[in-house]
Nucleic acid binder design. Sequence first.
DNA 1: CCAGCAGCCTGAAAGC
DNA 2: TGCTTTCAGGCTGCTG
Length: 273
Amino acid sequence: MPELPEVETIRRQLEPLVRDAVIVAADSHWSDKFTPALDAVGSTITGIARRGKYLLFQLDDDHELVAHLGMTGSFHLETGNGSDPSCAAHGKHTRAVWAFDDGRHLVFDDTRRFGRLRVVPKGDYGDIATLHQMGPEPLDGDFTGASLHAAIVGRSRSIKTQLLSQRPVAGVGNIYADEALFLAGIDPRARRVGRERCDRLADSVKQVLATGIDNGGTTLRDYVNAEGDEGQNQHALLVYGRGGEPCTNCAEPLSTIVIDARTTTFCRRCQKR
DNA sequence: CCAGCAGCCTGAAAGC
DNA sequence: TGCTTTCAGGCTGCTG
């Protein structure tokens, strides 16, 4: 499940490969989640930005191709496929293909079809609610304990649910939320988190995301980067996916519960409500 | 405005 | 062995 470190890894690999590419044709799966791929035909890619878990392909006509990978989305480049960009000519789960003027194809695969594509005027995210209301980038400096506290104070949902909402901070998903809450010593069910604990949590969020990027992302099931390789951060996880195993801090068996239909693993002794 | 939740998806794994 | 059920979860859109 691509979260910020996985999306950033893909962005870094892809950007130098697609810069200045001219999109001459495209094809997509029939779902209206993917048909906007065709709106990018005729444009030149000038770079790739990222906001939270969204990839933002910059187009030369003052538009952006906004891509969300959902649960199982991945991008890769293929060479030597001629000028036919049909999805059927690629993989079973190919949802979009963009043909470049040099003969290469940018391919978007997404087994479970939770991903989404849109072409919008640059910066115009009014129709993409989560992106429109996205909180600060965690590794850019605007995200602090103070900003986190300001974003959650007065709200009644659990701290984990709020992290996943993308509003207090951009790019945190289920894996890195569990990891950050463990490092900060905060129970994921906590509904009141004061300023001091927000300081610790902000630091933990930055730490787990930066480590995730350094390790090339986390591969538990489907994630592969733009070169088709798995990440290595799964070996650095302290709680996610380790229910029943001893806490690395106190040896108490880690608990697994469900919060908002998401598997949540934490230590009942080390993490406080 | 906010909280809460169903629905979207497929394939692997578990259950019978 | 083979069929059925369960599980994974980010985001959207609806309801109260």
